[in-house]
Design a protein around this nucleic acid. Sequence first.
DNA 1: TTGAATTATCAACATATTGTTGATAAAATT
DNA 2: AATTTTATCAACAATATGTTGATAATTCAA
Lengths: 210, 210
Amino acid sequence: MDSVETKLDPRVIRTRRLLRESFMELVAENGYWDITIQDITDRATLNRVTFYLHYDNKEDLLVQTTNHILDELVKRVETPKEGASPREMVQAALEANFQVYANYADFMKAMLGKDGVWSFIFAMQDYHFRASMESFQMMGKDFDPKKEQEIQIFLRGMHSTFMGVLQWWLTNDMSLPREEMAQIVYKIYTQGIYRCLGYKITEDGEFVDE
Amino acid sequence: MDSVETKLDPRVIRTRRLLRESFMELVAENGYWDITIQDITDRATLNRVTFYLHYDNKEDLLVQTTNHILDELVKRVETPKEGASPREMVQAALEANFQVYANYADFMKAMLGKDGVWSFIFAMQDYHFRASMESFQMMGKDFDPKKEQEIQIFLRGMHSTFMGVLQWWLTNDMSLPREEMAQIVYKIYTQGIYRCLGYKITEDGEFVDE
DNA sequence: TTGAATTATCAACATATTGTTGATAAAATT
DNA sequence: AATTTTATCAACAATATGTTGATAATTCAA
C-alpha cells in the first residue's frame, strides 16, 4: 500500500531492487542459509548499514521477496478466459503457475530443494490454498461444518500435491514442458494417484493391479 | 550401525537421551529456530561442552532425531498383514503412519507448522518416497524411462499430499480420529481431489459441477 | 577392588554475525 | 539554492558458536 500511495525516492527504488536481486542471485548460488547480510550488500555494492534502512533482517527481505513473486502470480494467473471449459480453465491456470515459477527457476529450485526454506514454501502453499478456498466459497455452496472441514483437508492436499510436483520439476531442471506438467497435475486431480499409477479402481473404492 | 555393534557407555546413552528429549520438548514449546544449544543443555542439566562431544551442531541433533523417528516408522509400518485386500493394506499402513506421528504430536506440530523446518519435512517426504519407490520396483514392472519419470512425479505428488494432510491434522490438534484421516487420504489417492470435492468426472477427464 | 580408560565439567578463549549509533557525504525534492 | 531524505563509514555492544586444556567423576576390565 505504501509503495503505491507515496512516491518513492529513486534511490530507495534502486537500493531495494539491488538488494532483492543480489539476494535472489546468492540464494540461487549458495542457498538461503549460507549467505549473510554482508554477502548481500557486497554483491549489491551497498553498505551493510543501508540494508537495515530497508529491512529488519534477512527473514524480512525473504518475506518481501516472497510477496514480490506472489504479486506476479496474482497478476498472471487470475485472469480466467471467456467461454472455456472447466478443464481448459484449470489447465490454463496450472500452466500459468508453472510459467511464473519458471521465471524464478534458479531461486525457486534453491528454495524448494534439500536446503530450502519452509516459511517460503508454506507461504506459497498458503496463498494457493486461500485463493482456491475463496473461489470455492464464491460459488456459494452451502456447507455443513463437517463438509467445510473436509474441503479444507482436500484443498491442503491439493496444493501440497502441486508444490510437490513443482519441486520435482525444478529439481529435474524443468525437463518436461509446462503443458505436459499441467496435464500431469490435472490428471492427478481428476483421476487420483492410484489410477495414474495404473491401478484399476472400482466404483466402491476397491482397487486391483491391472 | 555403531549404536548396535559397539556397546555404549551408559553415560553416553543417558546423555544422548537427555539431549534428544530436551530438544524435542523445547522445539514443541518454542519452535526449532528460537532455541540455542545452551537452552538444550540447560534443560538437560548438562554442560554446553558436553553437547559437542555428541553432536556437531543443532542441525546434527535434528538429523539424529529425525532418524530416531524414521526408525520407529520403519518398525511399525513395514509389517503387511496376511490375506488383506489392497484397500485394507493401504489403509492400515496409513493409519499406522498417523499413529506414529501422533506419538510425537507436539514436536511434529512445531516442525510442520508455520515456523517449521523444511529439511525435516523433506527428509520425511523423501523416506516415504523411497519406501514406495522400492516397493513399486519390487513388483517388477517393466518401465520405459518415460513411464519411470511419470511414476516418480506421481509418487512425489502422493507423499506431498500425505504430508499436507498430516500437517492439517496436527495443526488442528488431531481433531479427527486416525481411521477417518486414513480414509480421507485413501479417498484422495483413489478418487482424486476433484471427485472428493464433489465434481463429476467423465471417462475422458472432463469434469462438471454436479 | 584397584588401575586404566572414558566421559562430563568448568573456565576461558577466539570468531563470526548481528543490529545499532552518530557524524558526514551525496542525492533528490521543493 | 535551501531543505529534506538517503547512503556511507567507523565503531560499538551483544549474542551464539565451536574449541581447548585441566580437572573431576564414572565406567570397565583385569
